[in-house]
Design a protein around this nucleic acid. Structure first.
Length: 584
DNA sequence: TTAGGGTTAG
């Protein structure tokens, strides 16, 4: 064989191999290509190895990555490019810790760093929520002189923001001479109120918001329940040239659903051409917390007819929908189909949904048996769901037993003590209730105060339970006195069950219940808004029985639709009724 | 080759 034909055949092999690689979708095929490359000597060529590994790490098939690791480990002295490639490959995988392990090996090897090494490493840290490791890499960046590299710094900002270290994230952001769109988006994330403020600051700077900025801002609106701002961003999006991509579609659905506008959410959903599993899930979740169980199940069926496979989060959403609407049999069927028909192993979240489903429906023994028989170790959330059910269905004995378990697992969570004290009080065991509250104080655990907000003409007004700091508190209280008379004329008797303190008499309990934050916010809403407009309230905790009763009556007496988002779900009040059907 | 955005029970 002469030199020319040899080179031709190598080139030919290379061409053939590359085109095989493009079409390869199974690990078996990948192995065959690898074997052929070894046989033909192509694996000696660093260009070919790079191509091969690049293909493996960018593949959607998850078993190509471990194969890449095997091939990589067989390489004699991989260069910086290859190390970076592998670190990047694992950073977004199911095992981001492998990126960090690779980096440790890289440090011991002869390959030097370059600027491309850090962003992927920090992405692995973000995906692991690893604060310690982030600081270590930060130190390396400083030591090796990359502190002015915008990619490295933006990645650091993101890692610090993800791990909850906003101060550090801000500090770094403030030191960047010219922050770009990625710097802004990284620092804006996870900050809700501040996020929207920063979003506006960003618009006032020279940096144009892009689709990632808008997605961040919309997520913040969803969490805050800031409908007006969310709508503004939606129309801004339509006016600019920013393309509505699949993530934006999804966060828009989520924003409208979480701000109480299911019809708008559905409208956005309908207009999305390629509906991702996340978009379907966002819609189904919306139906879940609006209490539309049947619609949720129907969308769950429809998505599958369209060829979209539900993921574990879709199952959480549809099971929540069943639980909130009391669809016990449907929920159980869907739960047991997960592993059998979809090859998805239920996680603790799904078990939690079923405990909640059974508990709400009053099937306490079945719920307890379900917990005892489940293959995962029950956590505080699981017991918490059962305890809540004990309160609803007044099973004091079981409730006290679970209260003990919960405080043992979760001694620094205020809510656990409150629930346990309430269970004791429900059984009129005042000394035990007092003892629990004393213990809570001793542990230094705080009870979260109830807080409601109402948005009026773009301004958000915040009310805390028993709070007298609002500038118009006198007006609010005098209006409430009038409202209360009207309520009583319409048959209102206070529900004092949720106020389970051993106070001397009902008057004191009433005084407490009538200062609940949602009552203050609704009263203010009635004073400040025009007749006929919808009153929208956001509450940080679950709505209490008395407030729920009062709001139903107000919706009838004052002919107002009232939409209330509490900690877990929506209540739409209209003409004396609530969309939750008093099942919450 | 490098950085930022999606749905989640209580």
């Amino acid at each position: 064989m002469n030199v020319i034909s040899c080179s031709f055949s190598l080139e030919h092999n290379l061409y053939e191999t590359m085109s095989c690689l493009q079409r390869c979708s199974k690990q078996e095929e990948l192995k065959q290509i690898h074997a052929r490359m070894l046989k033909t000597g192509l694996m000696q060529d660093s260009y070919v190895i790079t191509k091969f590994l690049s293909f493996c790490i960018s593949s959607t098939s998850s078993d190509f990555l471990p194969y890449a690791q095997i091939v990589f480990d067989g390489c004699d002295r991989p260069d910086t490019f290859l190390w970076n490639l592998m670190i990047r490959g694992f950073s977004c995988s199911d095992e981001p810790e492998r990126s960090l392990l690779l980096y440790q090996r890289m440090l011991c090897s002869s390959a030097p760093h370059n600027a491309y090494t850090f962003p992927s490493l920090l992405k692995a840290c973000s995906n692991l929520s690893a604060f310690e490791e982030t600081t270590q890499i930060h130190a390396q960046i400083t030591k090796l002189g990359y502190e002015n590299d915008v990619y490295a710094v933006n990645s650091l900002i993101n890692s610090y923001a993800v791990t909850g270290n906003f101060k550090l994230a801000h500090l770094l952001f403030d030191r960047i001479p010219e922050p770009d769109d990625v710097s802004w988006n990284s620092v804006i994330k996870d900050m809700n109120k501040e996020a929207l403020q920063l979003f506006h600051e960003m618009q006032n700077s020279d940096v144009e918001p892009d689709n990632v900025s808008l997605a961040n801002a919309l997520s913040a609106c969803a969490q805050l329940g800031a409908l007006e701002q969310g709508k503004w961003i939606h129309s801004y999006l339509n006016k600019t040239r920013i393309r509505m991509d699949s993530v934006l579609g999804c966060v828009l659905i989520d924003m409208y659903a979480k701000c109480g506008e299911m019809e708008e959410a559905l409208e956005v959903f309908k207009n999305i051409k390629k509906k991702s599993v996340q978009a379907w899930t966002a819609l189904i979740s919306g139906y879940a917390y609006h209490g539309h169980g049947r619609e949720a199940i129907s969308k769950f069926m429809e998505m599958q007819k369209m060829g979209i496979k539900p993921n574990v989060i879709t199952f959480t959403a549809v099971l929540t929908a069943c639980s909130y609407t009391g669809l016990v049999e449907e929920g159980k069927l869907i739960f047991y189909s997960m592993e059998r028909d979809y090859n998805l192993k239920p996680t603790i979240e799904h078990y939690g949904c079923i405990v909640d489903l059974l508990g709400r429906a009053g099937l306490l023994d079945e719920a307890k048996r379900f917990i005892q028989e489940m293959p995962l170790k029950p956590n505080a959330v699981i017991w918490g769901a059962l305890l809540k059910a004990c309160r609803i269905h007044k099973n004091i004995e079981l409730g006290e037993e679970i209260g003990e378990i919960l405080i043992a697992i979760d001694p620094y969570h205020g809510g656990r003590y409150v629930h346990k004290a309430n269970i004791h009080a429900m059984g009129k065991k005042w000394d035990k209730a007092a003892e629990t509250r004393r213990l809570m104080k001793e542990q230094g655990v705080a009870k979260v105060p109830g807080c409601s907000t109402i948005s009026l003409e773009g301004t958000t007004h915040e009310f805390l339970a028993g709070d007298r700091s609002h500038p118009e508190i006198e007006k609010i209280q005098s209006k409430w006195r009038i409202m209360r008379r009207k309520l009583e004329e319409n048959g209102y008797v206070p529900e004092l069950e949720d106020i389970l303190l051993d106070l001397v008499d009902d008057d004191e309990r009433e005084a407490i219940v009538h200062q609940h934050s949602e009552k203050l916010a609704i009263t203010y809403g009635l004073i400040k808004s025009k007749p006929g407009t919808v009153i929208r309230i956001m509450k940080n905790l679950r709505v209490c029985k008395d407030c729920h009763k009062v709001t139903k009556l107000i919706s009838k007496i004052y002919k107002r639709d009232i939409v209330m988002r509490d900690r877990t779900r929506f209540h739409h009040f209209r003409d004396g009724k609530c969309s939750c059907g008093d099942y919450w």
